[in-house]
Computed example of a mutant assay.
Amino acid sequence: MIDLKTWRAAGETFNFSQQPIFTRKGGREGAAPLLLIHGYPTSSWDWNKVWPALGECYALYTLDMLGFGDSAKPRDCAYRIAQQADLIEAWLSSQGLREYHILAHDYGDTVAQELMARDNLRRASKTAGGCRLRIASVALLNGGLFPETHRAALIQKLLLSPLGPLVARFTTKERMAANLRAIFGAQTPPSQEEIDGFWELICQNNGKRALQRLINYMTQRKQNRSRWVGALQQSPVPIKLINGSVDPVSGAHMVERYRELVANADVTALANIGHYPQVEAPQAVVDAYLCFRAAQQRAANGARRQAAPVES
């Protein structure tokens, strides 16, 4: 585990629309780029337990999206998923990237779906417009991929209601901890250090006031269902789902729907793991991800051998 102080110390600032954004890079220089996209209401620190192992194989990129963690949390922001995708593409382009892989969780899954929708359109178009970024593969952890299977927690429903501003204002660390324990696996609850860190990052930059605005991603999922579910169904890139099965929000019931809607579904189900697999079972997530990428590499090597000219 990388403690929060150490995590922050390695961060950098990227300015997006005149707003400071916390970013972090690491891993193996020159290796394939892997973008890690965090969930709601936490931050990029969610990836600290898998960072060292993934960094042995990949050049890692992550950030606190607008309204999260150590990034800016402006009062007048609509916090649209499309805006978060704009932020990510602007940052990756500034890093000189052209192709990248994605590992996403929760809210980050929805952002990944928007990035995939854009990628699909660019591939279908004869011109890539002003952006040359291309997605190479996508791996998704627990998240609301389908609005019809997302079982929102009570606190999420309250934040989305007219009472949302009051609920956000009076939310406490103890209440947040109780909510987290309810969606983690019974055998893998968050540690006190994790609870303290999550809460500190939520409160940073008057962050509690952003909770109610950020939660509108649940409404956006319904409004954009065709685009974002279609992105999963139409993408030509390899897609992997790694899912904590006992997650009450997006666990086994979401996987069932995923298998119905996504052809040739590649799924790893983690028994007794809840909504935060990368926190609860980091080694299992790393193992599943590396197996996914190894299978991709074998398939690519086989395709190259078949395409190679036969010597006479």
Rank of each mutant, 00 (worst) to 15 (best):
W7K: 12
F14M: 05
Q18E: 15
T23M: 04
T23G: 10
K25M: 14
G27Y: 07
A31I: 01
A32L: 09
P33F: 00
P33W: 00
L34C: 03
P41K: 06
S43V: 06
W45Y: 15
N48A: 13
W51F: 12
L54R: 08
L63E: 05
L66C: 07
A78Q: 14
Y79C: 06
R80F: 03
Q83G: 03
Q84F: 03
D86C: 00
W91Q: 04
W91M: 04
S94Q: 05
Q95A: 05
G96M: 01
L97D: 00
L103H: 00
E114F: 02
A117L: 05
L121R: 14
R123W: 01
A124E: 13
A128T: 15
G130F: 03
R132W: 06
R134L: 00
L140E: 01
L140Y: 03
N142H: 00
G143E: 08
E148D: 14
A153D: 00
A153P: 07
Q156W: 10
K157D: 12
L166D: 06
T171E: 08
A178T: 11
A182C: 03
T188A: 15
E193R: 11
E200S: 12
L201A: 11
L201G: 04
I202H: 05
N205V: 08
I215R: 04
N216M: 03
Y217G: 06
M218C: 05
Q220A: 15
K222F: 11
K222N: 14
V229R: 05
G230A: 07
Q233K: 15
G251C: 10
V255P: 01
E260L: 11
N264D: 14
A265F: 08
V267K: 08
V267H: 02
A271C: 02
N272R: 13
H275L: 00
P277M: 12
V285S: 09
C291D: 13
R293P: 03
R298A: 14
P309H: 07
